[in-house]
Amino acid sequence: MKCLSNMERLHLPNDLVMQLFRLYEQKGQSYYYKALFSRDDEVMARTTLELDTQALAYYLKLNLTPARIKLLSDPKKDFVAKNKDEILLKNLKEILSRVQQLADTFDLTTNEIKDLTLTMFRGYDDIRLIRDPKAKAERLAKSFEELTPEDKLKKIIELFHQHRRNNKYEMVQIMTNFYIDFVKLGLFSDRNDLIGLMTIYTLAAKYFKVCRYDSFFQALLPLQPQFDSGFIQASYNWSEGFSQTEPIQRILVNVLETLHKNVEIKAHEYEFERKMNKTNSIEGTVLSGPATFSKKDIRAKHPYASDATINRTLMSLKERGLIRPLGSGRTAQWLRVTDKLEKFNPQQLDLFNHAE
């Protein structure tokens, strides 16, 4: 636990401190988002789950086609896995789903990490805490290095909670140092980096509620090269207690800041659409969008509109001679037969209506 036990030596640059101020100012909006999205909370969580699962598949470079990844990521469908990569992705989707449901009640413990590992690699590989015959039980060991892997894990978790309770260090900083210590200690027989990453994600979901409304791993994916490079940099002088943890902390802060910015945009769009008749909104998308479109395109633009509302609107436009179908079935396309509207101003939008 070279990082967690030497945090007093860390100094945050001014620009990172200012970024953290902005992040926690944005974090204060969490209760507003929870109230705003309450009606469609589960829908948004399912969308986030799907995007997180897809991004993880690409992050881990699983040998799966994009079409298969999309299919396996669908929260509403449960498929039989055909190979080891599909088993791993299915297990990860289950973990992400549990985090979405139970992040508020999560408490970092040895048993939680052991259970996380068992769930993640169930049917995939036998990965568990290393059994070191030379290690000693906590009551017999004279130093941290002599402890069993399980006691080492217990110690770094205790130190994590000690820093958290003392309020001396910022939470992302504590999470970063925990992650580096966890991976460098190599307490499990394999995939310590993935176990550590999923633990950090679970902690992020607990302390930063926007992880429910936007994809953490989708924001992390383009930063993967920097994240890997940051870990290599943090590995230098780790055993001496002088690990450079700032690069990984910056990446995690950037990811969380991206999530807050994305959710802020979603909140504006959601509030606008909530005050607007959804049928008119869908009509506007059809009449001002591409000439050829599908129901899937409409769903992407209006994720909170029900299938019934979308179908009813399309039928209405068809009866009025504004669109016509091209084919049939779930993949059917539609063709707009009227001229494209450059601007669409729905009449039912009341700018001065403050009613919920």
Rank of each mutant, 00 (worst) to 15 (best):
L36P: 03
M44G: 04
L16H: 04
H268R: 11
Q26C: 06
L197C: 06
G230A: 15
F178T: 00
K34V: 08
V286R: 00
T105W: 11
N277P: 08
I130K: 12
T148N: 09
D52R: 05
V183P: 02
L256M: 15
N111F: 03
F182S: 00
I156E: 05
F208W: 05
N91T: 11
E86Y: 10
T53K: 05
L259A: 01
A267D: 05
L349D: 05
I323R: 02
Y179T: 02
Y304Q: 14
E319K: 10
G196C: 09
S215K: 03
I195G: 01
Q233C: 01
L147H: 09
I69C: 02
D297M: 10
S38I: 14
K266A: 00
S38T: 13
Q224G: 01
L60I: 13
R312N: 13
S328H: 10
S38N: 14
F144P: 02
A35H: 14
A305R: 08
A103T: 02
L51D: 07
D74T: 08
I130S: 03
L326W: 11
G196V: 05
L314R: 04
R22A: 09
A57N: 05
T313A: 07
K184I: 00
F344G: 01
D297I: 09
P290V: 12
L194Q: 03
S235C: 09
S73R: 02
S143L: 07
D297E: 14
Q348H: 09
A57K: 02
T313E: 06
S97R: 07
M198D: 05
V253T: 15
M1Y: 08
V253D: 09
L102F: 12
T117I: 04
E319V: 14
I127W: 10
I195Q: 01
E145R: 14
E8N: 11
S316T: 15
E86W: 11
E264T: 12
K209E: 06
I248A: 03
R131Y: 15
M1D: 05
M276N: 08
Y169F: 15
T285S: 10
D78K: 13
N345T: 15
Y124F: 15
I282S: 06
T48Y: 01
L185R: 04
F272Y: 15
L64G: 03
E112V: 05
K142Q: 15
D297N: 14
Y24I: 09
Y236E: 11
T258C: 08
F272P: 00
P149I: 11
L220V: 01
F182Q: 01
I156K: 00
F344L: 03
I130E: 04
Y270D: 04
Y169G: 03
Y213M: 04
G321N: 11
L62Q: 07
F272R: 13
A67R: 15
T105D: 14
L36R: 02
L23I: 13
L326D: 13
S30R: 06
D15M: 07
K206E: 02
T53F: 05
D125I: 05
R164L: 10
I174K: 03
Q347M: 12
R191Q: 15
V43D: 10
D40N: 12
L322K: 13
L203N: 04
M175W: 00
I180N: 01
A291I: 11
N277L: 08
E94Y: 13
T258K: 07
H11E: 14
F344E: 01
Y32H: 13
R9C: 05
T117Q: 04
L256I: 14
Y207R: 00
Q249D: 04
K318Q: 14
D307G: 12
